[in-house]
Write a protein that binds this DNA or RNA. Structure first.
Lengths: 151, 151
DNA sequence: CACAACAACCCACAATTACCCACAAAACAA
DNA sequence: TTGTTTTGTGGGTAATTGTGGGTTGTTGTG
């Protein structure tokens, strides 16, 4: 289970150093094999350990082929999903097309989200966080499921 | 299971280099034998390993012969399906008529989609991707199967 | 039968990537 | 503090991969 934020720098080759505390964990469960893909609603990337990813891909593939919305999601999410591995130094090389999608250049944010990580451009995340906070304070109309949530 | 995007260049003879990571996989399961055909909804091509293709063709052939829509699909999909093989350098020669159908000239996209690959003209895919993303961000009315999907 | 068009095969070079090593910076211990 | 270990960063090099094109063989056409 991943959680927490980390400020990470991308180097000139597009590599990011995974925080040391996660390295052993990632090596243990999949020998460092991960899958990175795009988030379709936000300009950010999602990173899954391989074993967490596989059932997701299976579910997406099972969607009906002639449903346009399903095809759209398959093309976007499976289409962008790329296998990556940590190198000997605990770094991940993020594919150029995905870096471009999320606007990742140097300063970025790595955020634990349960079974996956999210990667954001730092500046973009700061703005988005701000707008999320504002939305929370205005929104009186939360969905049912949330109204009953007790933190 | 195929996934991920790759930028590929077609050479003057209409050949594309398969990304190295897939070559061994393709050789192992069918000795590099593939089937390429058209996608009827989009100007793109679909490439199947031979063993994945065969049940699909069988299913299409089983459709009722007197149903005009079925005949249409059979003619389009089976009609355009062509056997191809990787050459010694891991390249595929794409048949000229299919290249023309998908508007493939030089810069193209190869996209893993589960049991198959899709081939797109780069520019065409970029436009399509953009429209997919816009649809994702607007669509409030997703089909049932998708509403409950948790990624 | 001769020719043209095309496809298969081969080789060689260019470009890119993966792997490795070395150092800098930070964290921790004594 | 000072020394020691861990973590983060940069970049060189060798190996792999991508690209172009020449030559030979095959197929179809006039």
């Amino acid at each position: 289970m991943f959680r927490g934020v980390h400020n990470i720098n991308l180097d000139a080759k597009g590599r990011m150093a995974v925080p040391a505390r996660y390295r052993q964990l990632l090596h243990e469960c999949n020998d460092g094999a991960l899958v990175v893909t795009i988030d379709t609603e936000e300009a950010c990337l999602m990173v899954y350990p391989l074993n967490e990813w596989e059932p997701i891909q299976a579910k997406l593939e099972a969607l009906p082929s002639f449903n346009p919305a399903a095809r759209r999601i398959q093309r976007l999410i499976i289409g962008h999903a790329t296998d990556i591995e940590m190198d000997a130094n605990g770094r991940l090389l993020l594919p150029a097309p995905l870096r471009e999608y999320a606007g990742l250049e140097k300063k970025m944010i790595m955020m634990g989200q349960g079974k996956k990580f999210e990667l954001w451009d730092e500046e973009h995340w700061n703005k988005r966080r701000q707008s999320y906070l504002e939305a929370m304070r205005e929104d009186t109309q939360l969905p049912e499921e949330l109204m009953n949530l007790s933190l």
